[in-house]
Design a protein around this nucleic acid. Structure first.
Lengths: 168, 168
DNA sequence: CACTTTACCTTGGTCGGCCAAGTAATGAGC
DNA sequence: GCTCATTACTTGGCCGACCAAGGTAAAGTG
C-alpha cells in the first residue's frame, strides 16, 4: 500500500513512526528494549567468555550449588531442550560440570566448575553495571515504578501462557 | 541448595529470589518480559503463518510499500544478515517479493505480495490484542508512564550501542 | 580515467530459544 | 509383578539474531 504515492494524509503520518509502534507502542518498545539490552549484556559478557543468557544460568549455579537440570529449567523458566544445549556448550567451555544423580538415574546434577567461580563477581559486577546503564537518568521513584509496572506486565503475560513459576 | 552448608545469612536470602534478580531487578524483568511477550506474539501469529519478528517487517512493508532492503535494515534496526535471511524465508513462504532495484544494481527492492496483504488487518488486530493482553489491568496513566520509562531506557541503551536510528 | 572508499547484500558460523518426537527411568494403580 | 502414566533429559529441526568475511556495484578522490 502507499506504493509510492503519498496522496493520503496517513502516508505522511506513518512516515515517521512505524506502523507497529502505532498498533502497539508498548509491545514495540518491549522488543526494542529487550534487543538493545541483550546486546549491551553481550558486550559486557564477551570479555568473560559468556554469551547472553548463559550468565543467568551460571548465576543460579553459583548461588545454589549443584542442582538438577530440571530445577534449572524451572528456575530459568526455559524450554528443557534450551537448557540441555546451553549446558552442553557450557560444559565444553569448562564452565559447568555434569554428573548423573545417584538418587535418580534419569536426572543430571549440574554444578559450576571452580574455574567458573572466578567469574562470579565479575558477572555480578557486569550485571550491576548493566542495570545502571539501563536505568541511567531515572530517579529512584521512577525505578521503583518501572519495576512495579514490569512485574505487572510479566504477570499478565504469564497468564494463560502457563509454565511460568508461581511466585508469592 | 547452597551445597548443603547454610552458614551465611545470604544463603537464606537468596533462596527465594534468583541472584540475578538481586544484581539487576530491572534487567532481569526486561529479559523475562521480553521472552514471555515473544511467546505470546508467537501464539497469536502462528495461525497467520508468521513467526515472531516477521510481523514487524511485514507491517513496515504494508505501510511503506516497496522499499530497499537497506531501508528495512535501518527501520527495523537489525543486522543486515538477519534481514537477508528473514526475507529469504518470507519469500519462500510467499509473503514477500524481491526484485533488483533498476536505479542501483547493488540494491534489492522488497514488497509485500498481494496474498500477504490479506494478513494486514489480522496482524494489526493481533498486535492490538497483544498490546491489550500486555497492559491488562494497567490504568491509562500507568500505561503512559510505562511507555515513557521504556523510551528512556531505550535511549539509555541506544547510547554508545550506536547503530540505532536517531529519531527526533 | 584509474584508484580507493563506501554502500548493499550474501554466506557461513554460532547462540539463545522454541516445538515435536523420542528414550529411559521412576512411580502409581491394579 | 505388570501395566501405564509421569518425569527427566536428548535429539533434530527451525527461526531470530549476532558477527566476521566476502563480493559486487556505486560514489568519491587523485
Amino acid at each position: 500500500m502507499n506504493t509510492g504515492n503519498a496522496t493520503t494524509a496517513e502516508a505522511a503520518c506513518t512516515d515517521a513512526l512505524p506502523g507497529a509502534a502505532l498498533s502497539g507502542p508498548v509491545s514495540h518498545a518491549v522488543s526494542r528494549v529487550a534487543r538493545l539490552h541483550r546486546i549491551a549484556a553481550g558486550k559486557l559478557l564477551k570479555g568473560l567468555g559468556l554469551y547472553p543468557g548463559q550468565e543467568l544460568l551460571m548465576m543460579h549455579l553459583w548461588d545454589a550449588g549443584p542442582v538438577r537440570q530440571s530445577e534449572l529449567i524451572r528456575t530459568l523458566d526455559l524450554d528443557p531442550s534450551t537448557v540441555t544445549k546451553m549446558l552442553q556448550r557450557l560444559e565444553q567451555t569448562g564452565h559447568v560440570r555434569r554428573r548423573p544423580d545417584p538418587d535418580d538415574r534419569r536426572a543430571v546434577l549440574v554444578e559450576a566448575t571452580d574455574r567458573s567461580c572466578e567469574l562470579h563477581t565479575a558477572v555480578r559486577d557486569a550485571w550491576g553495571s548493566l542495570e545502571e546503564h539501563t536505568l541511567a537518568g531515572l530517579e529512584s521513584d521512577e525505578r521503583t515504578e518501572l519495576t512495579r509496572l514490569l512485574a505487572k506486565v510479566e504477570a499478565n503475560l504469564c497468564q494463560e501462557t502457563e509454565g511460568c513459576p508461581e511466585r508469592g
